[in-house]
Amino acid sequence: MVGAMANSTQQQVDQAYGFLTTVDSPSHGLFGGYLIVDLEGRPLEFHCTAPVRVSRAQQILYGATLHGHLHGRQIGGTLLAEGGVVPRLVLTDQEPLLQARPHTQLPLALVTASQGAEQAGPTAHAGFSLGSLTVVPHATDRADETVLREHLEGLIQAVDLNEPFERIRAAIEEAQRH
């Protein structure tokens, strides 16, 4: 359930939110970044992975399961296990990262630019709209959609939900330069 997954070693901070994304660097590999912010968008924690390189052979062997494994388990699962502060939910801007959900107890949702109903597939879950964005919770968390929405309505008073991903990307780009 939402907000009820803190283990004994994790710190409870009222109204923290997680943002999870990856940056694919042609020269280094795939970086993962996980930013936890407070209700005003200020950073509380940041975690980033060393780059993961995937060989051609691995691409062939993993086939269609590669993205899910790489993003969901390798990077997403690893990063979400690192947080000291327990966010109310974690947002990602990359669909493959939703596959981190089986590896964490944190609710996870995808943020996308709003699209018309006609663009959504007939079986796709539409999620809910917040301003110009659409939030699609992972299937596991759909039952908590109303609660998630309430949480995010507080956050979007100060923070554009796409903006923290820019910060993560900037930090990872910085990490590649230094």
Partner: peptide, 13 residues
């Protein structure tokens, strides 16, 4: 792809 990547941690609280 079993070995988990190393993670750097930065706290700002």
């Amino acid at each position: 792809l079993e070995a988990r990547p190393a993670v750097e941690r930065f706290l700002f609280s």
